[in-house]
Design a binder for these strands. Structure first.
Lengths: 222, 222
DNA sequence: TTTTTTATGATAGTAATACTAGTATATTTG
DNA sequence: CAAATATACTAGTATTACTATCATAAAAAA
């Protein structure tokens, strides 16, 4: 991908103070990603993050009201970034089938660090999304979070791919179900391949995941 | 289904003391289901459960080493029960396609309380599995839990349905991926329909979920 | 029936978590 | 240079997720 300077803008309701606007904020995000990745979300605390960046936890609380809010911010960032890559991958392509194929390919592509966006390590963030993002949906305050726009970027990706599905087959009845099944399925298979290989047909073999989901989507849409 | 007296046996490594063997144990399971359902897993504590059943939390810790262990026990119980129902639904059926159709139907069936198994409310348990079961996989000790057999019953269900898929099409390469995508997808769509309707094509419409997944499976396997 | 074992209850205690509050000191901005 | 704002430092709290101890009650073995 071109080395364009991109700015991922995140809905102001998802933070108390914009972490992108200060050095401390960027350190919270950058080190937050590293620590959530290495400790796992449950073992991760603002206290540990504070020690890691040499700031008191009370300073972190000025940016995010809780560690859950930080996770929601990171996951939103991720989906914004994926959405941007999807736009890029499918722009100026006329044949809907090719467009869909490219979109799926993009979703299945292994993540490389995107040097154009400095303080975020996309490789680690991607692994966080695989391992932890179910925790932002499965809480008693999903509905509130939904109203606050926490899942907006994720919906936008689903919407974008759904529309391509409809271009391929305008009579297809369940585009959102198909696309959310696809996206969640990809994440899940990657997680299983890494942590519970007995549950899948692949071991660290991204090609199998790609082959399976491409065929699944095209057969289902047809 | 017939009103047979069934006994769901759970691997002894999943508890400290068998909750099925004592009145207190059964109360822990029965009230545990109610409380996890009403509070959500993060708000649920052994202290609250103790107050609810009139026992100190230290007594509950004699049965389960943590609330996570209780959740794992409940989810294993659920998949044992589903596996039993799958066996029942597919027994003595020769045509593989019919067998697969029945298996999928069973997985998609709305849950009714099974009066033959007294102290477990299967309707609530099913909703717990939908909302909370991702929390037993997505932790830093998945691998340990996997070795302890925590996910064995779930695997058994996947294995059983995968084998039926292979009967339909012996050359199909990814039966486990298909079946786990199916099972997780069903749960996810139900969760979305209930809590995040904007992410799906259905509102409380189980028929759409059934229609979509049946067509997806048969088209993919063919 | 008595003894012994085992299960439960009652109470206490601990380290860690997820915050909140207040005040002093930098740092930035006008 | 003054005023506003951000950060650091310190302290404190309620809750959580346990663990430990000891007395008692109930069940099983003798």
């Amino acid at each position: 991908m071109e080395n364009l300077q991109v700015n991922i803008k995140i809905d102001a309701r998802l933070y108390l103070r914009d972490p992108d606007s200060t050095a401390l904020g960027r350190r919270i995000v950058a080190s937050g990603i590293e620590l959530i990745h290495s400790l796992g979300f449950e073992q991760f605390t603002f206290k540990k993050l504070g020690e890691h960046i040499g700031s008191p936890e009370s300073s972190i609380y000025r940016y995010f009201e809780s560690k859950h809010a930080l996770l929601i911010y990171l996951v939103s960032w991720y989906w914004s970034w994926i959405d941007y890559k999807l736009v890029f991958a499918t722009i100026n392509i006329d044949d809907p089938a090719v467009k869909l194929d490219r979109a799926i390919t993009q979703l299945l592509l292994p993540i490389e660090e995107d040097t154009s966006i400095s303080h975020v390590n996309e490789v680690l963030l991607h692994e966080i999304v695989i391992a932890e993002s179910s925790k932002i949906h499965h809480t008693k305050d999903v509905e509130n979070n939904n109203e606050k726009g926490c899942f907006h970027k994720y919906k936008q990706v689903i919407e974008r791919v759904s529309n391509i599905v409809l271009e391929v087959n305008p009579t297809f009845k369940y585009p959102h179900m198909l696309v959310s099944t696809l996206i969640e399925g990809i994440q899940q298979q990657r997680y299983f391949a890494e942590h519970l290989p007995s549950l899948t047909d692949v071991q660290h073999n991204e090609d199998a995941i790609s082959a399976f989901y491409k065929s699944l989507v095209f057969k289902t849409v047809a």
